[in-house]
């Protein structure tokens, strides 16, 4: 059963890869296709947020999403040739770090200043 599910997942991922890189949108720049891959990754993370059995799973997923967004911002800054997208990435990363620390303290049941 486990091997069967692994095989189904492999087929889905290979299909998405071929559709992204060789079938659709042949005329646009290469960096947009890399951004597509990262957007699919964040879709998987949102699946974990919806499905996660415990609160800690959701917190982990949100923290990871924050780090992934920094990569998307960096790719956008070279796709659109504007340097201020990396500023958005830095600010998002710091906010995500503070948010993860606050959520961890909330989960542990401590007050925020101890």
């Amino acid at each position: 059963m486990k091997t069967f599910k692994w095989f189904i997942g492999l087929i889905i991922i290979v299909t998405l890869f071929i559709l992204n890189f060789f079938v659709f949108f042949q005329e646009i720049d290469f960096s947009y296709k890399l951004i597509n891959v990262l957007l699919f990754c964040s879709l998987f993370i949102l699946m974990r947020v919806v499905k996660g059995p415990s609160v800690a799973d959701r917190i982990v997923a949100i923290d990871i999403l924050g780090i992934l967004i920094i990569g998307i911002c960096a790719l956008l800054s070279i796709a659109l040739e504007r340097s201020y997208y990396i500023d958005i990435g830095i600010a998002w990363g710091l906010q995500s770090f503070i948010g993860a620390m606050a959520l961890a303290k909330f989960l542990e049941g401590r007050s925020l200043d101890a």
Binding site: A56, D63, F97, A100, A104, K105, L107
Partner: peptide
């Protein structure tokens, strides 16, 4: 942030 979350999850009994 990773080990803050790990410690919090362990202490809250997951």
């Amino acid at each position: 942030s990773a080990h803050a979350i790990a410690k919090a999850a362990h202490n809250s009994g997951i």
